[in-house]
Amino acid sequence: MIEVKGLSKSFGNVKAVDGVALSVGKGELFGLLGPNGSGKTTMIKMLTGQIKPGFGSLRVHGVDVLKDPLRVRELVGIIPEQETPPSFLTAEEYLHFVAKIRKLERYEETCEKWFDFFNFGDQKNVLCKDLSRGTRQKLMFAQAFLHEPELAIIDEPLINLDPVMQRKVKDFLRGYVKNDGTVFISTHILEIAREICTSIGIIYKGKLVYTGRMDELGLEGRNLEGFFLELVGQPGEKQANYETGITGMIARE
């Protein structure tokens, strides 16, 4: 569903993404992991045709993203990192707005299903600007799946949700993938990847430093956090910082 080759993107002198190649097959739940500022959101923006790469090629859902970014956004369900639905529409109106933009028919029932799924209750009549961040994120989640896409690309899927909703969303995503859906998520919360992803990629300073299936990761005796830190940091040095560095700094102050 996603084929990326030699993908690079710079902002001024900063290389946000540097020569990334990856492939995500149908039915996979792929997690792109990386520390803050490692290039995850830039990757998602390129995959969905929101920004153009400096170099490289991308095919998403069989479409060349560079040639037809609109077609990609028609086919794919996308949840951006920032939840910014229009301020003066209510939650319900916003879903109807998205449904009309996507030229869907008989969408009212689907919208209601999503409001039930996320326990919106009366909140569906509240202006988007007055909703809490968590509720806005639920709304963004609903809009991404309104047209029942075969591929969903999600930037930080659970970051503002409470534990109950996190569980529901994780269960939904597992079920979605079981029914032949494909999901590409980016996150820096390793727990999410460990629980739901079938394969992962680890990006660090714009470079993809690891890709593989979760079941082939060989985590025996180690946790994902240890593996991740080995790839993106130097555990010995970090430990020294935790144990002596910060308290040492405070003592010096």
């Binding site: 529409l89 707005f97 009309k100 009549n125 007055d130």
Partner: peptide, 15 residues
């Protein structure tokens, strides 16, 4: 003071 403003759906009818 934080006020949550609610409205019934006018969008669908208008569009």
């Amino acid at each position: 003071p934080q006020v949550q403003k609610s409205f019934s759906n006018s969008f669908s009818g208008l569009s």
